[in-house]
Design a protein around this nucleic acid. Structure first.
Lengths: 205, 205, 205, 205
DNA sequence: AATGAATGAGCATTCATTCAT
DNA sequence: TATGAATGAATGCTCATTCAT
């Protein structure tokens, strides 16, 4: 609140802001044309800066893509952990995960497009790509399922990792369909549709 | 067995063979480096032909990719329909669909890689891409679910299209994990794992 | 003289011709603007071909420069050895070396410019540059001086390598002056001017 | 010692110092990577200042190179004239010139590298480059030779300018070899080696 | 004077596609 | 049909220079 603080935060904010602006611009551009069809000049222009400026904040075009994934993954997971902290029941946790997944991506269509369209190619072909985030995410689901098995809420005759992949795959497919669809509809409500089936599939009887 | 006949059949066979060879080569090359990182020259070289020859069979690089998808989709669906013809019970049909899906892709890893990695980008960004095949595939599942609801085998309180997407998404995730995994394991057995959960999720009680 | 022969030589000639044309074009362009100020597009345009064609014959811009040096060095040295073969007296050999040096470069001004202007930078800063040719050239002179000392024609109280460098440096300076001069004068006659002094400097008394 | 005085002298000294620092930094950087491979940012960093500061002292990158040549030439020549003043005999003068030439460059390897490697290119291709200094230097040698001819010390049957170029070329070659050599040896003693031959070449008999 | 973030012109290289043979 | 040499448009990235602070 003092002058120095504001000044400092402004200065830092400036750097951060421009980096952020480039990432936002890149998400928009990648979403609309795909990573390989996007030119660095498109990103710069969308961000309202000169081409060369991009390289003051990122070492290369693919570092931009990587940064998009990394930043989103980190926030995605940390927000997820935070939200799950207060929940006790494994079923509630699973519900929360599904809701967060679709709310988050449903709230940022461009980011969703980039994730659904580019992530696999990057994971498979991009050198040194940190798929770590994704593995961590899947593991949170797996652990929650295992927890539900221990507590007697979920069936014990299924492999937690398989159940986790099924949930993830189901949610992912909702997102993909939403992303590829020309119709505009809210994504978040699909969580309940998925869970209505999923819970029956995994609950103990 | 006359000369003209042989010549004709040879000629046709040759055309078909070379076209096929190019597609096989492209699948291998795309699988190993990704569509955008693959050069037409790589494909030609892998197919054992000259660069220019590729253009006698395909109009452009992306037509090759399109052809890979189309050909696989057509065969996939026609084989699916043929196999489903003899089955009565909706549950048996669903099981057959799941098994075929994983058997087919599990039997051709390169093709699976190309599908999992490139399909979304093509659907989203490739001009005039015929996602028709995919829609048809999903619709077969949807119709089968609806059939099961009518017959009283499956729950009536779920939307068939949602249930269809969940099955597709689950299978798709199994394939993606298999494709991205460095470990080598058989994909087909995952069908049963998925169905063990899925059937509980959709069956009428 | 037969058809195949002509055809073959034509085919080979074509490749060789284009490579040669690129080298000639590059020599002209480098001579007029310097290596670093020359664009590959300039070379292509000067050679009457498309930009990309350059890369069918050379891997990079600096490989072109290297090739210019290598080709000239090889021919320079092999011609030198051939001409020296028939000469007995060390003094005659030295004279022939000086004459060839200036005749050769005096006959191809662009090549001379490139050599005088770019060679040192390349030797010093270009990775993996084969200065071998130059060392070999200097060694031929050194050996001839040593020979003259053995025969009693040249002074024994001087180091052959120093005498060799002095001759080379003197000739090199004549070329440099000629190359940088705006006046047009024949270079070859300078050989005699140099030798008039040089021989007095090294002859035995 | 008053404040204003100190401040003024400091200010002037500072200006001069910083300009000097930039030149020293540039010499080091150019010597190690060559003019065209050096970035202005490298020079600034080597000088311990910001990139932009370079432009407060020099109008452009090539003005820096020009300044290096000019400053060195001016000092080289003025020191040469000063040293020659007290000498009478043309032979002594020639000896002094040769000694100074090699001592000077031998004492500053980086400067020598820049001179040997970049000077020709600059003379040939750099717009408005003042080769004046070099011409003046050569003329001093020429005049001294002519003087020696008048005095009867040197042969009259040779052109002074040729004899001058031979001396210059010989010394230049010693420097070039020293600069390109990976071995470390003192350069100055080569003066005597050169003169041992050169004097015999030009002296009157 | 000093800074260093921003600029944007410039360029080597790649590669899908064509076409003469 | 088949070839593969030739094309030339396209683009990621660099870096000398500027200028607001």
């Amino acid at each position: 609140m003092t002058k120095p603080e504001r000044s400092k935060s402004t200065a830092r904010g400036a750097v951060s802001d421009k980096r952020e602006a480039i990432l936002r611009a890149a998400i928009a551009v990648f979403a609309s044309k795909g990573y390989f069809n996007s030119k660095v000049a498109d990103i710069a222009s969308q961000a309202g800066i000169a081409d060369g400026t991009v390289y003051l904040y990122f070492k290369s075009k693919d570092e931009i893509l990587r940064s998009i994934f990394d930043a989103a993954m980190v926030e995605f997971i940390s927000e997820g952990r935070r939200e799950l902290e207060n929940l006790i029941s494994p079923a509630d946790k699973i519900r929360k995960i599904a809701e967060l997944h679709l709310e988050r991506l449903g709230a940022d269509r461009d980011l969703a497009v980039v994730f659904q369209v580019e992530l696999r190619g990057s994971t498979k072909h991009m050198q040194e790509f940190s798929a770590a985030g994704f593995g961590e995410y899947l593991d949170i689901i797996r652990a929650t399922i295992a927890e539900g098995q221990s507590s007697g809420d979920f069936r014990s005759d299924i492999k937690p990792i398989v159940a986790a992949k099924i949930l993830y795959g189901s949610l992912d497919e909702m997102v993909t369909n939403w992303v590829l669809s020309s119709r505009q509809y809210p994504l978040a409500p699909m969580a309940n549709e998925v869970l209505k089936i999923y819970f029956e599939g995994i609950k103990a009887r």
